[in-house]
Design a protein around this nucleic acid. Sequence first.
DNA 1: ATAATTGCAAATTTTTTGCAGGTTC
DNA 2: GAACCTGCAAAAAATTTGCAATTAT
Lengths: 136, 136
Amino acid sequence: MIDYALLLKEHQLKATFQRMQILEVIEKYGHIAIEAIYEEVSRIHSSLSLATIYKNIVLMTQKGVLTEIPIIGEKSKYEIIKDEHIHLICTECGTVIDKMLDDDTAIDTEKVAKTSSFSLEHRQVNLYGTCDHCQS
Amino acid sequence: MIDYALLLKEHQLKATFQRMQILEVIEKYGHIAIEAIYEEVSRIHSSLSLATIYKNIVLMTQKGVLTEIPIIGEKSKYEIIKDEHIHLICTECGTVIDKMLDDDTAIDTEKVAKTSSFSLEHRQVNLYGTCDHCQS
DNA sequence: ATAATTGCAAATTTTTTGCAGGTTC
DNA sequence: GAACCTGCAAAAAATTTGCAATTAT
């Protein structure tokens, strides 16, 4: 379990009830779009406004609590920042699966950046296809 | 030079003046957002409506003429479909640079997909950082 | 106590749609 | 000439903003 209050404070953000709710929902689903956060949060605490969700998603993304995952043909999803990983995105059901990288599956993007004198800060690797479940 | 009329017909789309204009602008810039296409196209042919651009971007993307490049913190850009490559995205100036992959810089994503029984269809690798030009 | 945050309603921006007239094949 | 496309204006959807009341530290 993540200590959301701590996570927020570490990023110079006040630990409000609303932010905790939002983080809880994001954590529960792993990757989730804004409208879906709203629907889910509303179920629990009906007076949390959509504007507040927008403001907080923007803020928490700026402060480094969240990362945006822009997806082809869909609205962006958001996740809580964690160790580097790639995304397997199912084009059937929309599910996003995290995949950590090990030595065997390392992605040599640094070399690419180096040969282009590009100063690399953040990598985003998304693989689109059909997940295990949707193949059957 | 790309033969836009041919490209469109190969994808079962009529070669209209508007579509050619849109493709020309996309090709000229390499990667470009919808609003920017509109501004650029308007300069040449002022009566091309934004609605037509939207309709055609959607259609040409569906038909496989274009690909969407969703970008963290920005609107998606679009490019004409070409051989697989990755994107170096400059967070200073917004420029997107294409980088073809060679054996030296191959990205072993197939292995990743395989170990997850994920049926891979499309890979999207975006590296965010600062481009050569903006570093100085 | 102070500065930040919330919710609301309104404004803005972005994207989609319907339809009459025009164009491509 | 049939099917498809365009432009317009209007509608719908998504996102942002201002401000008074509330809350976290």
